[in-house]
């Protein structure tokens, strides 16, 4: 049994330290996913805490392995992000609330990729159509497999693979990279949704 499987077993038995270990393993990629969904860092950090609180309350009823647990966390996160978007939609538009907020200053990615490239990439991700953004963030931030994502979003595997392909084509174009067969300046799949 791996350390994380052991942590999951302990969390199931009500041991908060088990859930704390799971938090340390999964919180950072989940935070990146949430930032792509709710756009503002502070909201994403609040939701991150809520996701793990919710998981801790219900983990005794969770019936699956550690891979399934990670996918389950993303399903909770996705639902929470949708709830937040719905709450925000009922409010009058707040021009400051939708402003782009980049990841924290101390994030390790800045060292290798370069701050400017990282910011361009985040902006390009944020400009993706919602369904593509959700899939590409689960895949590359969360490290979920395409079948796991298909389970989380309740869509056929083929649709998930097509969405991640289109997302990467659009990101490549937005970053100025060459990709044949995509008209200049056009994002593929602008109107598609995952619902």
């Amino acid at each position: 049994m791996s350390d994380l499987e052991d942590a999951l077993e302990r969390a199931r038995a009500g041991d908060a330290n088990g859930m704390a270990e799971l938090y340390r393993a999964y919180a950072a990629p989940l935070l990146a996913y949430l930032v792509t969904q709710v756009r503002r860092r502070e909201d994403a950090e609040d939701l991150l805490g809520e996701v793990f609180l919710s998981a801790m309350r219900d983990v005794s009823r969770f019936d699956g392995n550690i891979g399934g647990f990670r996918a389950w966390l993303y399903r909770i996160a996705s639902n929470r992000a949708v709830d937040l978007a719905r709450r925000n939609a009922r409010r009058p538009e707040d021009p400051l609330a939708v402003a782009f907020e980049q990841p924290g200053e101390a994030d390790p990615a800045g060292e290798a990729l370069g701050r400017v490239d990282r910011e361009r990439l985040w902006r390009a991700v944020m400009a993706l159509p919602e369904a593509q953004r959700q899939v590409v963030a689960m895949r590359l931030a969360g490290g979920l497999s395409a079948p796991e994502i298909a389970t989380v979003v309740g869509k056929p595997l083929g649709a998930v693979k097509a969405l991640q392909h289109r997302a990467l084509v659009n990101l490549t174009k937005a970053l100025g990279g060459p990709y044949p067969g995509v008209p200049e300046g056009r994002l593929e799949g602008r109107e598609e949704t995952i619902d």
Partner: peptide, 25 residues
């Protein structure tokens, strides 16, 4: 080219949870 973009995105997504936030959670 798509794989290169995916590599860069994966790197950009590797952000950290601020220590104070993690401790509070």
């Amino acid at each position: 080219p798509l794989l290169q973009t995916a590599r860069a995105a994966r790197e950009a997504f590797s952000i950290a949870v601020p220590e104070g936030v993690a401790r509070a959670h």
